[in-house]
């Protein structure tokens, strides 16, 4: 799998969530994603960036462009927060430890083609999602 480019961007403030959305939108458009696919991957990025900020106490997003054999966009959200104790529970719709609706993680999973969580309690969480063109 050919990685064309990698770019890291901070997720430390609410404005960073907006910046993440813009960056993901621009990149997906550049890769030739359809409007619906752009909207899905940007929405997933928005949910995951908010999780990184609120539950992970901030972190960063790595944006990886894949080209060959398939064109795709991979996003890695990484934080050094408290980690997720029960990933299955966290993925369930309606489960929340914050004040949200509990749709963030499970909803983001439905909007992408590949979804992976690596979380260590006390160490942090990395969520990696991929959307293929």
């Amino acid at each position: 799998m050919a990685v064309v480019s990698t770019e890291a961007t901070p997720v430390a403030t609410e404005s960073d969530i907006v910046a993440v959305r813009r960056l993901v939108r621009e990149t997906a458009a550049k890769l030739g994603f359809s409007l619906v696919d752009q909207t899905k991957v940007v929405t997933a990025a928005s949910e995951l960036a908010r999780n990184t900020l609120i539950h992970g106490n901030g972190g960063e997003m790595e944006l990886i462009t894949l080209n060959g054999p398939r064109v795709g966009l991979r996003l890695k959200f990484h934080d050094h927060g408290p980690g997720i104790r029960d990933i299955q529970l966290a993925l369930r719709d309606g489960f929340t430890t914050g004040s949200g609706l509990g749709l963030g993680l499970g909803g983001a999973k439905r909007l992408v083609n590949e979804f992976e969580i690596d979380s260590q309690v006390g160490q942090g969480t990395t969520v990696t999602v991929t959307r293929w063109k």
Binding site: L35, V36, Q38, T39, K40, T43, E47, D93, L101, L103, G106, G107, A108, R110, L111
Partner: peptide, 14 residues
Amino acid sequence: MRPAVAITLVELGM
């Protein structure tokens, strides 16, 4: 609401 937004919102679970 834009059509792409509607599609995404429903898939998101809202």
